[in-house]
Design a protein around this nucleic acid. Structure first.
Length: 316
DNA sequence: AAACCGTGGAA
DNA sequence: TTTCCAAGGTT
């Protein structure tokens, strides 16, 4: 596996460093998010906040602006909280080993687990990749690879199967090079052991695989998707747009959006589709002429505000 | 334990 | 077109 990995691994920005801060940032961004989506966000982020200290000093609103469009926005808030926690409680754990060889203390797996937004997978990924700690990981890729190689047909959502996957991951861990091993399994899932049309002929594990190419893992019963149509109004006045702020908790917490069309007349200028977990939304945007300021709304310059992707698109 | 939390790309 | 789902975590 490590041999296959060294030969085929993609050249990704966060693979060019062993800086635990950089790896941490990349892991948070990559949660439930595709590599190609993350890359530009990651590069902008690292340019803006090269170190934990820089991140801890920055105002939350600045991180949120850089995060706009990435989704799962509590990740940005957690990253900020964790950075401040880290900078105060573990001031030396994220030093990069340099030519001067500064003293670098060691934040272990359990230390990472205490940070908001860092769970078992992320803590294991950082510990193994940045510190070569002997920590296992199970993500979507690992689950798929293991499900096929070991022919695991029970739902991967069940606690029993989860335990089995984690136990497997731990038992397969080498004594050294765990970071490389973990990434190798994930990379195999990303490049070869694909969800559909897996490239079994090119797989280094085909000799051992018990269920090559099967439609695994079994994800259990699929969730119901509900369709919704939302009508919103686009009202411009000078450089400003009529916007409404969402509640501070829940879906798209605290973000600014186009206000709902409340029974006035307008011209349909745009319809776009967006999906939020189990909801599929058709967003219809109506251009309206608005005199005063409807209750709960504000005339805002949208540039610096943080908006949901679909609403941001509607302004363009 | 099951539900919630975004987005965009691919099949 | 619709469906699936990607380097998950929190409540």
């Amino acid at each position: 596996m490590p041999r296959w990995y060294r030969r085929h691994k993609r050249d990704l920005p966060w693979r060019r460093t062993l800086d635990p801060y950089a790896i941490w940032v990349s892991e948070i961004m990559l949660q439930q998010t595709r590599v190609e989506t993350v890359i530009p966000y990651y590069e902008r982020w690292m340019r803006a906040f090269p170190t934990v200290e820089a991140l801890a000093r920055a105002p939350l609103s600045r991180l949120q602006k850089l995060w706009e469009g990435l989704g799962y926005y509590t990740r940005a808030r957690n990253l900020h909280r964790a950075a401040r926690q880290l900078a105060s409680k573990h001031p030396r754990c994220l030093l990069v080993e340099s030519g001067e060889s500064k003293e670098r203390s060691f934040l272990r797996f359990t230390g990472w687990m205490e940070l908001p937004g860092v769970g078992r997978y992320t803590a294991g990924a950082i510990a193994s990749i940045a510190f070569d700690e002997r920590a296992a990981i199970v993500d979507g890729n690992v689950a798929r690879v293991f499900a096929r190689v070991f022919n695991i047909r029970d739902s991967v959502k069940s606690p029993a199967t989860q335990r089995r996957l984690w136990t497997l991951a731990e038992s397969l861990l080498p004594l050294r090079g765990c970071g490389e091993f973990n990434q190798a399994v994930m990379e195999l899932g990303a490049l070869v052991c694909l969800p559909s049309n897996p490239q079994c002929a090119a797989c280094p594990l085909r000799w051992a695989c018990k269920a090559p190419g099967d439609a695994l893992p079994n994800r259990g019963p699929k969730q119901q998707i509900q369709r919704v149509t939302e009508d919103v109004m686009l009202a411009r006045r000078g450089g400003k747009v009529l916007l409404r702020r969402r509640p501070a908790t829940g879906l798209l917490a605290g973000m600014w959006e186009l206000p709902p069309l409340d029974g006035r007349r307008g011209r349909l200028v745009l319809t776009l589709r967006c999906a939020i977990t189990n909801r599929r939304i058709t967003l219809r945007v109506w251009r309206c002429a608005v005199r005063g300021t409807p209750s709960g709304c504000h005339w805002m310059s949208p540039g610096r505000l943080i908006m949901p992707a679909a609403h941001r698109q509607a302004l363009a």
